[in-house]
Every structure is written in structure tokens, then in C-alpha cells.
Simulated assay, not measured.
Amino acid sequence: MIRALFIVTTALALGACATAPAPTEPPAQTPKPADGAPGSDRYEHKVDSGPEQRPDVESQPEPVPKEEPLSAYGNPKTYSVWGKTYQVMESAAGYEEEGLASWYGRKFHGYRTSSGEPFDMYRFTAAHRTLPLPTYARVTNLDNGKSLVVRVNDRGPFHSERIIDLSWAAAARLGIEGKGTGRVRVEALTVREKVKPSREGTVPTAVRAAVDSPPPDTAKAAEGDELYLQAGAFQALDSARNLERALRDELKLPVSVRQPESSALYKVWLGPFASNEARDRARQAIRQAGFTPPIPVN
């Protein structure tokens, strides 16, 4: 992963961030701690990688969006990298984009991010070129349907084909660590938006299942009724097949791809289930596995 030192064009500097190489000499007011401790200004490792001992990222709780003041660092109106000027957004409200995600890890662990916080590859964080710092965002892997809330506290990646740089933990949780990059959708979250269910039809290439669903009914399905879960809906058949395989391989649940005559979307359905209680147990298992919670359908 190539990183570059960039010069901020306003009086407010981004600082020695994890997304840029350290200055030639550490700042006089911040002596370099030993052993790569948080706040260091020199990289111990020349090549980036994941941790030698992998912690369990599946059980790690996601960040909960909350109101936070803008960071004192990393939020200039504009800054320049490699001769290109970027304008920091005044608000993250309504931001949504699809593109490639990359990740960074051990090489930058413990070093300062653009916001001034130490980078921790074991936390669910990310770097973005223009979102305000900090911003909470939901990142969804478009190839397997897994999604995760991250806290954006750094700047980067400065490659035009990439839209976000994830911490190692976030990349591992989303299933893109091994490939290095992955196709994702990034949606900025506010405290109010976090508690609302998403709405089908608001995403151009893949429709995420709603986060909330009606309370479970433990009664058995009425005779002739079939109970299903919809895990996602996609315009591309390949994306639907990828989610189908991921769900089947990880959860061993009955899953199929359907395309109703009245819809142009390929829908990933699980089931049928014998009762609402069985369906709700499956939905909980899917959520705990890191996938976006599916919506009940009949």
C-alpha cells in the first residue's frame, strides 16, 4: 500500500497521520515513544500486513454512532496530496458511494491518524478523503452482503480508484482482507439514521435488507403459507450468487436466488421455515455472522 506525505493548503494541518509517511524528524513537542507506541512518528515495518496473531473480529461489537464534535485536526476546508486538492465536506449527511475499498494494518498500527488519534488496526475504523472527521459509516461488501459500521478518523486512500481505506479488523470482518481490495458501498450514518431501517430501492446496484423487522411470532405458519427471509436484492446475478454461496457455506441454511417476473432484481431468499420462531432464529444467526439482517417475506 503506497502512502504519501501531503501538505495541507490551509493553516490547519492534518498532522502526522497513518495515511502518510512520517516527517524526516519527529516534531520537537512530540518525542517518539519506544516500540512503536501510539503517537510514534516513524514506521517500524516497511511492508504492511495483518497481525501475526489474529484476534476474533467476528464477536467484536460494532461502533455505535453518537454525536461527536469535529476533530481539531484533519478537517481543513481543503488540502492537497500529489498535486491534487481535496475539499472536506461540511456535513456527512446523505453521503453514499460505491467503489473499491482497501485496508491498512500492522505497518501503521500505533501511529497518528489525520485526526490526531493513534491508529488501532484492531478497531473498526477507516480513512476517507473528504468525509468530516469523525464520521460513522456503514460499509457493505457488495460481493458477499456482509456489512459493518466503522468510525472514519483518518484521511486516504489517495488512489483514484478507491473510495475508502479500512482498518485490518474491518477488512477481515467484511471478508476483503485476503483479496486486498473489495467492492463496497459506503453510507454515512447519523445518530437518527442509525436507528431507522433502510428502505429497499434506495441503492442503485444492490438493495440492502431492512435492519428492523416486526416482532417475532412463535405461532406456526398457517397451512399453505411459506415463510422466507430475504437477505438481499441485486441488479447483478453474480452479486446475488456470491451472497448465496457465502450464506450457504457459513451458515448451512437453505438459500436460493430468485427473480420474480415483475422485478428486475435478483433476490436472495432463505427458507422455507416451518414457523416464525424458526425464521427468527435463523435471522439472528445471520446477523451474528456479520451479514446484514434479512427481512421476513411470505
Score class of each variant (00 low, 15 high):
R3Q: 12
F6Y: 13
I7S: 13
V8D: 13
V8R: 15
A11H: 10
L12C: 04
A16R: 03
P21L: 05
A22P: 11
A22N: 14
P26F: 07
P27T: 08
P31D: 03
A37T: 14
G39A: 00
S40H: 14
H45K: 10
G50P: 04
Q53T: 15
R54F: 02
P55H: 01
S59C: 12
E62C: 01
P65C: 08
K66F: 01
K66A: 12
P76F: 13
W82L: 12
Q87I: 08
Q87T: 15
Y95D: 10
Y95T: 08
E97F: 02
E97L: 01
G105E: 05
R106E: 11
R106C: 04
H109L: 06
E117G: 06
F119P: 00
D120S: 04
F124T: 02
T125A: 06
A137L: 04
T140A: 09
L142K: 07
G145D: 00
S147A: 13
R151G: 03
N153C: 05
D154V: 00
R155I: 08
G156H: 01
F158L: 11
H159L: 13
S160R: 15
R162H: 15
A171S: 05
R173W: 05
G175S: 12
I176Q: 03
I176W: 09
K179P: 06
G182W: 15
R183H: 15
A188V: 12
T190W: 09
R192W: 09
S213P: 01
P216A: 06
E223A: 09
G224C: 03
D225Y: 08
L227W: 05
Y228I: 00
Y228G: 02
Q235K: 14
Q235G: 11
N242M: 09
L243S: 08
R245K: 14
R248C: 11
D249R: 15
P254N: 08
V255N: 02
S256P: 06
Q259H: 12
L265K: 13
W269R: 09
F273V: 10
A274K: 14
A274V: 03
S275E: 05
N276T: 03
E277T: 05
R279H: 00
R281N: 12
Q284S: 14
Q284W: 10
A285M: 04
Q288G: 05
F291Q: 03
F291E: 04
P293S: 04
